[in-house]
Computed example of a mutant assay.
Amino acid sequence: MMTNLFSVFDPSSSIFNLSLNWLSTFVGLMFIPSMFWLLPSRYHFMWNKITSTLHNEFKTLLSPGGKLGSTLIFISLFSMIMFNNFLGLFPYIFTSTSHMTLTLALALPLWLSFMIYGWINHTQHMFAHLVPQGTPAVLMPFMVCIETISNVIRPGTLAVRLTANMIAGHLLLTLLGNTGPSLPSSIVILLIGAQIALLVLESAVAIIQSYVFAVLSTLYSSEVN
């Protein structure tokens, strides 16, 4: 019996006191198709289609002054998060994206680099963002405070959104799975059906949350140009 519901997210595998759970973050690299086959597979064509679609969408979101190839970092970010979200749905694989350690480590450097670049190279533009157009003069100090706070909490909201969505689905799957042994066989069939439906939902959430993370990072990047 579990003493703590959140213990399913604890890193537990270790050799010589070195935690091995975080190595699951790099397992997704094995799913990336090789570019060196003479005849590319269907999976390769599908992956190229996904990346080209993301490239076109991120290029639209970025400002016209964006550098060539700037969408690659956001496509890589989407791929990494999506692979890790999917891997967390497999039994006995550590879900690294359910920890703020990883999500905040992705969001904070991105946001910080955008802020440093924007305030150094486009200072006047960054100041203009603090006061929305058409704001009355009386409300300007309050709007500056509100916009500053909303800007500062952006990396936190990015990290918490991804972590909370990953934890919520996994906790629900764990709760339903732990009630199975104590239920009669007639209800277990319904439980299995509910688990399958939740697994499909979690697969959709894994894609949506990685897409939301990448799109919001792209939008934050477009604001500093």
Rank of each mutant, 00 (worst) to 15 (best):
G169D: 05
V200K: 07
I50N: 03
L61S: 05
N48G: 13
S52Y: 03
L29R: 06
S182C: 09
I32Q: 09
A204S: 15
M35Q: 15
L162G: 05
I50L: 10
L198M: 01
Q195L: 08
I93D: 06
L5P: 12
F142Q: 04
N225I: 13
L172Q: 11
Y117F: 11
F83D: 09
N56G: 07
L198E: 01
P91K: 06
T95V: 11
A194Q: 15
L201Y: 13
I73V: 15
F58V: 05
I196P: 00
P141D: 02
L190H: 12
F94D: 04
G134I: 04
M30K: 14
T218G: 05
H55R: 10
K49N: 14
V8I: 12
L199C: 08
N178V: 03
L108H: 08
R161E: 05
L77K: 06
V27R: 09
G66W: 08
I187S: 06
L102H: 07
I192K: 10
F213E: 00
N165A: 09
L87H: 05
G156Y: 01
K67A: 04
W37K: 14
P181T: 03
K67I: 00
T135S: 00
L176G: 09
F16V: 13
A164H: 04
S98I: 03
F86V: 03
S182G: 12
H55V: 03
S52A: 10
S96M: 11
N84P: 15
S79I: 02
I167K: 08
L139F: 08
N151G: 11
A206N: 00
A214T: 09
L183I: 05
P33T: 07
M46R: 15
P33V: 04
L5W: 14
S63Y: 11
M126A: 02
N21D: 14
P64C: 05
V27F: 06
I146S: 13
I153S: 03
Y92V: 11
P136H: 00
V160H: 01
G177R: 03
Q124C: 10
P11R: 06
G180L: 15
M1W: 02
T95M: 06
W119L: 10
A194Y: 12
L62E: 00
N121T: 08
M126Y: 07
P11S: 00
F78P: 12
I149A: 10
I73G: 14
L104W: 11
C145D: 09
C145V: 13
I187H: 07
A204F: 15
S76G: 04
T123F: 12
A128P: 03
I149S: 07
F58D: 08
M115W: 11
R154I: 07
S13K: 15
F83C: 14
M143R: 05
F83I: 10
L216Q: 03
V224Y: 04
T101F: 09
I81K: 01
A107V: 00
M46D: 14
A159Y: 02
L139P: 02
L173T: 12
A214W: 02
L219G: 05
F16A: 13
L39E: 14
A137R: 05
L171H: 05
S19G: 10
L175C: 08
L158W: 04
T97I: 12
I93L: 08
T95S: 07
